[in-house]
Design a protein around this nucleic acid. Sequence first.
DNA 1: TTGAAAGCGCTAACAA
DNA 2: TTGTTAGCGCTTTCAA
Lengths: 336, 336
Amino acid sequence: MPRATLAAVAREAAVSRQTVSNALNAPERVRPETRDRVLQAVARLGYRPHRAAQTLRTRRSQTVGARIERLAEGVQGVVLVRFLHALTARAQLQGYRVLLFAAEDDERETAAYAELLDDHDLDAFVLTGTHLGDARTAWLTAHDVPFVTFGRPWGSVAADHAWVDVDGAAGTRAATEHLVSTGHRRIAFLGWPMGSGAGDDRRTGWHRACAAAGLAVADLEVAALDGLETGRAAAAALLARPEPPTALVCVSDSLALGAWTEITARGLEPGRDVAVIGFDDSPAAAVVGLSSVSQPLEAAAETSLDLLREVLAGSARPPAPRSVLLTPRLALRRSG
Amino acid sequence: MPRATLAAVAREAAVSRQTVSNALNAPERVRPETRDRVLQAVARLGYRPHRAAQTLRTRRSQTVGARIERLAEGVQGVVLVRFLHALTARAQLQGYRVLLFAAEDDERETAAYAELLDDHDLDAFVLTGTHLGDARTAWLTAHDVPFVTFGRPWGSVAADHAWVDVDGAAGTRAATEHLVSTGHRRIAFLGWPMGSGAGDDRRTGWHRACAAAGLAVADLEVAALDGLETGRAAAAALLARPEPPTALVCVSDSLALGAWTEITARGLEPGRDVAVIGFDDSPAAAVVGLSSVSQPLEAAAETSLDLLREVLAGSARPPAPRSVLLTPRLALRRSG
DNA sequence: TTGAAAGCGCTAACAA
DNA sequence: TTGTTAGCGCTTTCAA
């Protein structure tokens, strides 16, 4: 069966094409009984509008762009996938689709924006992995393109755009508080080097929880680039001290799993001898029994779309863009 | 700067619009000097055709659909992400985009096809996770929709479509041969229940390698649903035997990691006391040092697009659809 | 080899 | 409230 066109629906319902269009897009302009007649014809014929035609006319594609990143060697990346799945699933419930693109760096990503906007009339973008001095948000703002970021705008300049993020500090704070409540007094933080927004944020949570519990933090903070080997080395340095920490809060599962390796290599048991808590709740964490801070990615996707709708609705007379901070959950396992 | 239209290019090059179109789409019909003039105008104005208009006219969207799966609890799923990234990156080099969709099961996936074809004029689909009695390939074939599968058509009926797959049997055979070469004589296979195409294929590789080496396989084969706990239980049963195996070839990293947990829980060391080799080379495998069979996903994505081009080119007078079997690589680590 | 005309399916602007 | 007209940007006839 060939697809039904709007014209066919108009014939079927014995109205003009414009009335069909109105019945679907501006129902309040059509008398209820006319509208019913049209909707019945739509149902009978199984009519759905043709996107290309709609896009050509309205310059809106009902499609949002999202970048898919190359999966790093580490344990990260699962977060992006889960988010993308949730985003796609929820978007399509609202009549939106997600178009993928790949880009090696920010510069090429903005080039991709230009192309996708010109060629495909994308309505908006969903960005992930925001970072300090993010050139992408500046470009999108300058070009008046609707977008939301999953990840808050890091840095001093209060970027004025809609964003969702997970409260990393709350996650590490909860992790630290849990360790305190189970009797730990020397809790170290295994973080990334200063200057990464998310990393600094997560460090803050640990720091505050320690302060609130009256625990010392001096000498209990080490930094390492993300990775298993680096995490292992950093943990080795901590454990080699005369008075080693009894618990480790880590900025990522990669570092935590590296620490895990070092701990077991020393004949110690994570959780019993040294507590370890990671961040991201990757599958690998579940595998080995590593406690980890779990990001609410379904909620993040849903909120992204909520914010996007607001941005798209208000693009003429923009209200203050909203931002939402979601609280992560602590997934407790054997290690902490 | 507003986007340049084809009409603008025509004015700039002082030709008609059709000549511009011809110069771009059917160069042989245009005199070389005219063509040059047009191409220069295109470059000067930075013209790129508008997809919606092109699609409306030609019924081709230069877009392929791909389903993004919900990431299971286990370790799987990373394979899909890596494949999707490679697919997206390579597709866009050829002027194609990847449109995502989500579907809970095969039935809803075919419903999604119908919708995407009608509404978005998708040119083709790339399917992953083929299985026995796959309703999706039948639907696509019946509706004459171009597609490629990553995963061969399992089952007796020789489905007549283009596909790429990784030779799972070759992977487990290589793993088994490696274990044989390091002195193992009692090599068990920890697989999925009979009836899954990929699982049976992987079992075959182990079986053949054992037969070739003159090793017994009786009683050395256990099956479990994919998962960590199930893998652990299956490994426990194997290791509790009077004459336990000295090595385990596993159908997936999830099962292998489950076995890993059981081995270490017994105070044994994977690789030294019991060898374990998994399948998929997930990040978790790298984390713990699990040897694993690694699928060439970049190659799979590239081949998928090659095959898709052939299918699209030959859709009028179809040649025999091609199929390609790629050989996986054995990533050796501490465990085997 | 190039150009003129028509129309893909839809909706914005306007008229009735 | 409904219908008419026009046109989004492109390519496919067909004629020059």
